[in-house]
Computed example of a mutant assay.
Amino acid sequence: MLEQFQNYEEHISKAIDWVWKLVPNIILAILLLVVGLWFVRLINKMVRKFFDKKDYDPTLESFLQSFISIVLKVLLFVLVVTQLGVKTSSLIAIIGAAGLAIGLALQGSLSNFAGGVLILLFKPFKIGDWISAQGVDGSVKEISIFNTKLNTFGNQLAIVPNGQLANGNIVNYSAEPIRRDNYTVGIGYGSNIKKAKDILLELCADDERILKEPKPEVYVAELADSSVNLSLRWWAKNENFWGAKFNLIEQSKLKFDEAGIEIPFPQRVIHSQEIED
Rank of each mutant, 00 (worst) to 15 (best):
F125R: 02
E222G: 03
P177S: 06
K245R: 13
N44E: 14
I95H: 00
A175G: 05
R180G: 08
K195T: 07
K237H: 11
L22A: 10
N172I: 02
E3F: 13
L91T: 04
D57P: 03
E10Y: 15
A221Q: 10
L75Y: 14
F256I: 04
D55Q: 15
T148V: 06
V47C: 13
S227A: 14
L104P: 01
S69I: 05
K245V: 01
I92M: 10
E262G: 03
I178D: 08
P266T: 05
G36N: 11
L121N: 03
M46F: 13
G99S: 10
A114E: 06
F39T: 06
I102P: 07
V80E: 13
A158S: 15
V40R: 05
D207T: 00
L32K: 05
I210S: 03
F265K: 10
L121F: 10
F77N: 04
V80I: 14
I43Y: 05
I94N: 05
L232P: 00
V185P: 03
P161Y: 04
I193S: 06
E3K: 15
M46L: 14
D52V: 08
F246T: 07
P161A: 04
K245F: 06
I68F: 15
W130K: 09
D57M: 12
F256G: 02
P124F: 00
D198A: 11
L165R: 02
G243Q: 08
D55C: 12
D181Y: 01
K215G: 01
R180V: 00
E202C: 01
N147K: 10
D129I: 01
G116F: 07
Q164E: 15
M46E: 12
F122Y: 09
K14I: 04
W20C: 04
T82N: 14
K253F: 12
L104R: 10
W38S: 09
Q83R: 15
D206V: 01
T148S: 11
A93W: 08
Y219E: 08
L150N: 02
L165K: 04
L157D: 14
G135W: 00
G138K: 00
A114G: 07
L2Q: 09
A97K: 00
F5G: 05
V81W: 00
F77Q: 02
F246Y: 14
W18N: 09
L150H: 02
K14D: 11
D277N: 11
N7Y: 12
L223Y: 13
V185S: 00
L110E: 07
A175W: 02
F51C: 06
L2H: 09
I170R: 05
S69Y: 15
L106S: 11
T82R: 15
N192H: 07
K195L: 12
F113S: 04
D206N: 15
L42P: 03
A114H: 11
E239C: 03
G168S: 15
K123V: 03
D55E: 15
R233I: 10
P24D: 02
D277C: 04
F113V: 10
D137T: 00
E3H: 11
K123M: 06
G99Q: 11
I270W: 01
N169W: 05
K197E: 08
R233S: 13
G115S: 08
F39H: 07
L121K: 11
V74W: 14
S227P: 03
N238H: 04
R48G: 07
P177W: 02
Q107L: 12
Q164Y: 12
F5V: 09
L33H: 06
G116P: 04
R233M: 12
K212S: 10
E142S: 09
K195P: 00
